Amino acid sequence: FWAPLVDAMYVEAFGRRKSWLVPVQLLCGFLMIWGQYQIDAWLGESTADGQQTEPDIKVLTMYFFVLFFLMATQDIAVDGWALTMLSRENRGLASTVNSVGQTLGYFTAYVGFLALNDADTCNRFFRAVPQEEGIVSLGGFMAFWGYVFVFTTLYVVLFKREDDRSEDEPVESITGTYRGLLKVLQLPSVQQLCIVLLTCKAAFAAADAATSLKIVEYGMPKEELAFFTTFLGSAGIFLPALLGKLIAGHAPLNSWRWAYPLRLMVGLLYAILVPLSSATYATSSEHPVMEYLKIPTLTVSKATFAA
């Protein structure tokens, strides 16, 4: 909704995209650095002085709403900059790079954080002398990426220059941009695409959301389950890069139409194999080998058809 504002309002001397990208990323970084001192209290965990508090749902909601709003604004500016930064023949690869980056970020924040935050995992793989706490706390993790945001933004300010706007990309006024947006939304093909994108995941959303929860309920530790998403992360990083040229062609949705029925079949595999997991864990106190083979297979299949 606010994308036309990001596109039309800027300081020309500073740069059309940098006018939004720089302040938004700096604000995100400072919010994460500041949040490291508050997050334990907000979550109701023990603070530095040993006091236990109740989770503050309202503050958590407001904090992450602001953070995600800023991230969405940054995403708008980055997507717009990619259109002018990349050559015409490579603009179709912008979505591929975006997909790879999001998957890598999800993998780092999920698998990486759980591995370094869990004491048992750290003692098993990273330490010679066991300790009661993980290597990284949630506050420390937030602070690290906050500093990454700040220093990356400073690098963009000092060393990255925006190319001059080409004549075939005129800047509309705010009202003109919104009028253009309304005209685009009135196109039948765009309306059909919106309906597809808003409903396409409904067929397998329940299977995706419930599978990991049920497997944890049946006995697999969540930290070890997170390790299996390594396969999903690897596939999600490399497959979009390999399929990028195909997706960036004249009919990019053809590959999606081909993969969608196969993606539905992965949901059926979840429905079949999760009950088997219940029986397997019920009869074994050790972590079954078949589960260690089953979950990577499913995650790679899911990533393949989602890419």
Rank of each mutant, 00 (worst) to 15 (best):
L246T: 12
P170C: 04
E172L: 13
M9T: 12
T175V: 11
E224H: 10
T229R: 06
P170E: 09
D49R: 00
S95C: 04
F228G: 06
K18W: 02
H250Y: 04
F65W: 10
Q51G: 04
L181I: 03
T199W: 01
K214P: 00
A282F: 02
T280A: 15
L26I: 10
E286M: 08
M142C: 06
D49L: 01
F151Q: 13
P4V: 01
P240I: 00
V22E: 09
A109P: 08
F141I: 05
K58H: 15
A279R: 08
V6I: 13
Y37G: 02
A279D: 07
V184H: 12
N90L: 07
D118I: 02
G80I: 07
T175F: 00
V274Y: 01
S19N: 12
F204C: 01
A72Q: 12
S95R: 01
G80L: 06
G249M: 09
L246I: 10
G29C: 04
P188V: 07
Y110W: 08
L262R: 05
T211I: 03
T211F: 07
F14W: 05
L232Y: 13
Y63L: 11
A109F: 02
R17N: 09
Q102Y: 10
A48K: 05
G101R: 14
T84L: 08
N117W: 00
W20K: 03
T177K: 12
D164G: 15
S277N: 10
A209K: 07
K18D: 09
M85D: 11
E162P: 13
Q186D: 15
V100I: 10
L138F: 04
Q191I: 00
S285D: 15
K18C: 09
R17D: 09
L276M: 15
F65K: 05
E54K: 01
D40A: 09
P296L: 00
K58Y: 12
L181K: 02
L116H: 05
T84N: 10
L154E: 05
A209C: 09
P130W: 03
T211S: 15
E54H: 04
